[in-house]
């Protein structure tokens, strides 16, 4: 049965348990970072950072808004990266779980082709092996009936994992519940992805590539139509 991760950002405290747990499970070393005047570090996803909590702060009148966005691969139902793939078996989608996996063969892919196909700007490349890399939904753990490590680490209920239909139901319920406090709340691309975010405000206030599509509710058809479009332009439109 296809799985999904539901990320309720209204519960996220940016403790970064998920960001660190992901690296620990995968035995990734640190990438060099500097303090640049923000708590978000590393600045972006890397070949050793498949999960990154993004921080964005805003002042609305006198009210401070500090938004946290635990960014990762969305495991699209019809992954544009897979459509863009030119190497057979390099990018596969596991029908049993919905996990989108980059295999060893992805070292033969062209990073820019695959990355620009991704509406969320997720794929990265290992500089040594040349493999394309990203979140694999901890498929090793999921197959063993264990939670993905990021979900496991989350105590706040921000990260949830389960059967897709259950996660969609939970997402819908949470959206209803938080709309009272946050009228602009929405679910991001829930019909197209296996990693469904609930945000309390406009998605662009969280992250440039939080949502695919200008309106924030792009259909799968529209998304597919953009597969080969330079996606970062979309992001720039979102940013305004």
């Amino acid at each position: 049965m296809p799985k999904a991760i539901f990320i309720d950002t209204t519960r996220c405290t940016a403790c970064r348990g998920c960001q660190v747990a992901c690296k620990e499970w995968k035995n990734f070393p640190a990438v060099p970072t500097k303090q640049r005047g923000t708590h978000q570090n590393p600045p972006d996803l890397t070949h050793y950072n498949f999960k990154l909590v993004r921080f964005s702060e805003h002042l609305e009148g006198d009210v401070v808004q500090w938004y946290f966005f635990p960014d990762q691969c969305r495991h699209c139902l019809e992954p544009p990266c897979k459509e863009a793939s030119t190497v057979d078996g390099a990018i596969i989608r596991d029908d049993a779980t919905g996990a989108v996996i980059y295999t060893e063969k992805s070292s033969k892919e062209d990073l820019e082709t695959v990355r620009s196909a991704c509406p969320y700007n997720i794929p990265r490349q290992d500089p040594v092996t040349k493999r394309l890399v990203k979140c694999d939904m901890c498929i090793d753990r999921v197959r063993a009936n264990l939670l993905p490590m990021c979900v496991k680490s989350c105590a706040m209920g921000a990260m949830n994992f389960g059967n897709r239909e259950d996660m969609l139901k939970l997402a819908g319920e949470r959206l209803e519940a938080v709309k009272k406090e946050f009228p602009k709340a929405s679910l991001l691309n829930q019909d197209d992805v296996s990693v469904i975010y609930l945000v309390a405000d406009l998605p662009a206030k969280y992250h440039e590539f939080a949502v695919a599509g200008v309106s924030g509710s792009m259909t799968r058809k529209q998304m597919l139509a953009r597969i080969f479009a330079p996606v970062r332009k979309i992001g720039q439109q979102v940013r305004g």
Binding site: R16, Q19, V20, A30, T33, K34, Q35, G37, N41
Partner: peptide, 12 residues
């Protein structure tokens, strides 16, 4: 902790 120092590397 490498991942901790990566996330918060320096005095601010």
């Amino acid at each position: 902790g490498p991942a901790l120092l990566e996330a918060e590397p320096q005095q601010y």
